[in-house]
Design a protein around this nucleic acid. Sequence first.
DNA 1: GTGGTCTAGACCACA
DNA 2: GTGGTCTAGACCACG
Lengths: 130, 130, 130, 130
Amino acid sequence: MFKIDQRGSTPIYQQLVQQVKEAVLKGILQPGDKLPSVRELAVRLTMNPNTIQKSYQELERQRVIETLRGRGTFVSLHYKPSKGKEKMSVFEEDLRNLLVEAHYLGLDRAKIMQLVGRLLEELKIGEGDS
Amino acid sequence: MFKIDQRGSTPIYQQLVQQVKEAVLKGILQPGDKLPSVRELAVRLTMNPNTIQKSYQELERQRVIETLRGRGTFVSLHYKPSKGKEKMSVFEEDLRNLLVEAHYLGLDRAKIMQLVGRLLEELKIGEGDS
Amino acid sequence: MFKIDQRGSTPIYQQLVQQVKEAVLKGILQPGDKLPSVRELAVRLTMNPNTIQKSYQELERQRVIETLRGRGTFVSLHYKPSKGKEKMSVFEEDLRNLLVEAHYLGLDRAKIMQLVGRLLEELKIGEGDS
Amino acid sequence: MFKIDQRGSTPIYQQLVQQVKEAVLKGILQPGDKLPSVRELAVRLTMNPNTIQKSYQELERQRVIETLRGRGTFVSLHYKPSKGKEKMSVFEEDLRNLLVEAHYLGLDRAKIMQLVGRLLEELKIGEGDS
DNA sequence: GTGGTCTAGACCACA
DNA sequence: GTGGTCTAGACCACG
């Protein structure tokens, strides 16, 4: 279900955070669904349980998942977009940097817009009704 | 000319790499232009010359700038989009992750497309003839 | 395991790069093997950890080794000959220069071919199936 | 007549040394031929005269050329292969390193031998009768 | 003057 | 424990 790239610069725990969020977004994980336990996932992904733990903590901090003591961890029923304007400007900066990279990879405006469009479909990001 | 954020997680040598690439892209730095010397820039940005060095060497590896021995460093006359398909898939992965973030920030499809469009203008990324 | 010439004009970080590549080629280091940690090797070779770092990073850029975060650095499982035609012409140029030197050292065609043959044996370079 | 690569790691003055030696080897420059004056060559190659000077000094040190005061510089009538065994081992080391590179460029034994053979032809290196 | 290498010593994030 | 970043200060070859 999750694919981790051991090499590559992004930290493993962040990759997991990303993938859980993506799964929720796509509807693969529905609100209320139970996530695998830390230990189980550690075995399946052959990772250190501490790393899984760190991912879950980060996801909980972002209100994407919730932990019910003794029951397990579940996808939050209502997640709220946070919208801090600080986060927005960080996001915009990241996006700008990525677009610079795109140009140095030989992509022009049309190809970039097309790629963004395709990924939005794939991620099922549409109007704000989600 | 360059603005470095001393705190913040992204390494400052990478920030400089990004900003030089962005400046070249926008035309602020033209092919053939001389870059400030390592020492001079170190003084202006109040950072260590070694750090500037690291940035310049990375930029040279990426063929964005060239070093003429004893004369200084210059913006490359012809930089070639590299196009490695591996780099492309890394890029696509990064973009996907960023779009997931966008959604969690409350942006819908329309707002994302609009933002991308605006940034492309700002960076002067147009058709492939640039 | 590695022998570094502290004096002599070639940078010692490059010497280390060369020797690692040679060790991999000879099979002394097998794909998947763990390299000594930066700190440990620094102690063993009595050099600065930063210098070792530089070597390792260069080797990683060349895809000879891979870094697994927090676990260490390893010989790449699959390294691919890069084959850039630009690199090829640089190589041919270097080889030409070296052959000119050979002549000025008093070596004739036969002795040169013999020496090349001997070194190829020593390095275990054979048919393309290695 | 001489082609200098301003970028690239090998020092300009060494490139010139190399090319003069190569020209002598090929017979383009014959023993007794007059070399261009420092100033003239500096103009033709758009280089700093000091750099040309350095090249000529190095060539003279290697006994490839001779300077006749007030007359100019000439290709030596009899150059003697030096054969210092120290130089030989340096040469062998350089050759070994280059062969390692060859392998990482995807060349196998046959292709390397073929390339060496071609270059020897091109440089007119034959039996020891030169 | 330019960039390139090296050391010493410090701090940090990741697993 | 691992590698990655940064500073301070030094020395060198090149043009």
